[in-house]
Amino acid sequence: MMNINTAVENRNQENTQKKRSQWFEVWRRLRKNPIGMVGLFIVLALILTAIFADIISPAHYVEYLGRVPAYEYQDLRNRNAFPSAEHPFGTDNFGRDIFDRVVHGSRISLQIGFVVVGISMIVGVIMGTVAGYYSKITDSIIMRIVDILLAIPNILLAISIAAALGAGLINVMIAVGIGYVPFFARQVRSSVLSVREQEFIEAARAIGAGDVRIMFRHILPNCMAPIIVRATMGMALAILSAAALSFIGLGIEPPIPEWGAMLSEGRRFIRDHWPSTVFPGLAIALVVFGLNMLGDGLRDALDPRLKQ
């Protein structure tokens, strides 16, 4: 009895060690990749900015009004101001500090990125796994749905859904998220097809594992590398699409400091006041660039075979 217990313990220990070394290996490879590391740095900076937005741009206390968040505080004597020590990015046409608004906007973009990718990844992964595992009719039905969604260019699908649902944060997330389901579904399906035929799946089936267990416990963990890469780059695309929707008036509406909506407002003053269009767009570009670089680095680090 004693011996068996120690043997099991030993094996468990071996497993955890192996797991740790696998992720350590990924980290080691990522660390050597300058593009990936710059991306990681930008993404971490974004996350920290979002978390500490209230410390970076603290709320103002105004007589009679009380606490006013930094992104709503209006310095009415300083409208459409240009960058200065007081307002590093200048102010917009309501006299709101553009730097404060960009800082707080990171929260919205980050939320959109995580939620959109979360929704579309879960739905897409389930669809792709089921399609790849069962093949035949189930596969055909799911993949035809995927084909139909892919037949509509992404931004147009998002416009169509957002027009039907109306503006607002949740609706934007749904509108953008549906468009990314097919990408995950396709990716996962092709990975599942290649894993499905391997011997350890046969072995799992032989010891009586059910379909659901085989799919999510045995097949899916072996398809994670491309999913992680796609999720990182999908987050970049989701932030871009959401900003585009807000820009054309279908997304998040002012006065919420969403970067696309800020651009849309600032655009009216493009002739006289460049800061209102330059800085929000710069923020979008930087964040999306960071996520793309991180995705690129992760692709090389997670699976050297994927390296193009």
């Binding site: 696309g260 269009t277 767009g281 793309n292």
Partner: peptide, 20 residues
């Protein structure tokens, strides 16, 4: 790197910057 940057810049913002 330039390619990654080019796909990261929102095209509506690029348009505004070119106009400016």
């Amino acid at each position: 790197a330039a390619g990654l940057l080019a796909v990261s810049i929102p095209n509506f913002w690029l348009g505004l910057m070119l106009i400016i």
